[in-house]
Amino acid sequence: MYAFMARRLLASIPVIVVVAAFVFLLLHIAPGDPAAIIAGDIATEAQIQSIRVRLGLDQPLHVQFFQWAAHLVRGDLGTSIFSNLPVSRLIGQRLEPTIALTVLTMIFAIVVAVPIGVIAAWRAGTWIDRSIMGFAVLGFSVPVFALGYFLIWVFAVRLEVLPVQGYQPLSAGLGKFLESILLPSLALGIVYIALIARMTRASMIEVLSQDYVRTAHAKGLSQLPILLIHALKPASVPIVTTIGIGVALLLGGVVVTESVFNIPGLGRLTVDAILHRDYPVIQGVILVFAVIYLAINLAVDLIYTVLDPRIRY
């Protein structure tokens, strides 16, 4: 187990290196002078020159890269051009709302999606199955921000049962926290629910056609234990894979959802950074998101061994 974890961690390193190299090059592959891009449209030559020196852009590319990478390894993500604060501190301040939103949405989505996927597979071909799958296609098609505003309009503007926007940290009390995060989770979760429900149904249909499931029926077991014990457990490996892959979708949605609901998380930090062309922050955030994605997929791989004892690494 530990050997597997070590190997799996080592395998993530090349991916991180690629992401880091890409993030570094991002500023240099763009047409034009990066310093001029950062300075914006109304900047004097002297301002551009000072940015160039401050970011070390006047040095050769490979020197810049190694300097940047050396800082990175020490956890130094640079300094924000806009606010002059260390990027790692800015990210640290914004981490809580994003993690709260992501984790809550994941839990909420799995709790909803797996049961409806199981029901769709159990009742495959009936109107129940068709309406669940119809809902899933719709869930894939509605953009998160459109759904977000629709929910705000229904629940906050018309019914006035929930706050319009804003975020209350967990320290403000569980009730307030949940109230502020409910609509964002709902908006963000739909795509993820659609994805997991479809995979659950597909995987369950395959397992339900197996001989041992028929045997279980034949020996007189009732429906529920067959669905949950005989079928869902072996069907869960592809479902868990989808949950892992879908995290990229979820993290992308977080950026948008935070803008819609005014949640001061990493997503808002990114959007603000882009509007200010604050490149060190953009680079830092992309790296952090990539690390979160890899960490969750590492966790998914570990869950495999629990779900399917035949999988040995």
Partner: peptide, 10 residues
């Protein structure tokens, strides 16, 4: 793999 580790929107 590196490209896929970064959310598309971002």
């Amino acid at each position: 793999d590196g490209l896929m580790a970064v959310p598309g929107v971002l």
